[in-house]
């Protein structure tokens, strides 16, 4: 499944990486502890988190994640969005919480 399909299915707001939405999503990962995210997700996974700190971009970039969904409608810091553009990491926002975002992605076949 491609990022653009997920954006449509979950009605996400795209903050950065509008030109990167053809990216293939290999699976889902949810978590807010950066050390966990550095250890666990696989390349191409989409990451669901509450964190908005700029460190999330470095983490996503080093793990080659396909994108980040920030939940609960939280607004990422300016610095975070700037880094996201530089590192080519699509950042998207959902008004839902992690549980429902993960639930709905799982429902449309993301594992």
């Amino acid at each position: 499944m491609k990022l653009k399909d997920i954006i449509i299915a979950l009605n996400l707001e795209v903050k950065t990486g509008k030109d990167l939405l053809e990216r293939e999503v290999t699976g889902g990962y949810a978590g807010d502890l950066l050390s966990d995210v550095l250890a666990n997700p696989k390349k191409g996974n989409i990451w669901i988190t509450l964190q908005i700190h700029q460190n999330i971009i470095a983490v996503a970039s080093s793990k080659q994640l396909s994108g980040i969904i920030i939940v609960n409608g939280r607004k990422p810091e300016e610095e975070t969005l700037k880094k996201a553009k530089e590192e080519k990491i699509p950042v998207m926002i959902s008004n839902l919480l992690t549980y429902e975002v993960a639930g709905r992605l799982y429902e449309i076949g993301i594992r």
């Binding site: 699976g27 889902g28 990962y29 666990n40 669901i48 549980y99 429902e100 993960a102």
Partner: peptide, 20 residues
């Protein structure tokens, strides 16, 4: 089971989130 799949499995089994 990791967080993502745990949410997915419970959601699929009908346990709701707050918006629902």
């Amino acid at each position: 089971i990791p967080m993502f799949e745990s949410c997915g499995i419970l959601y699929k089994n009908g346990l709701m989130g707050y918006s629902e």
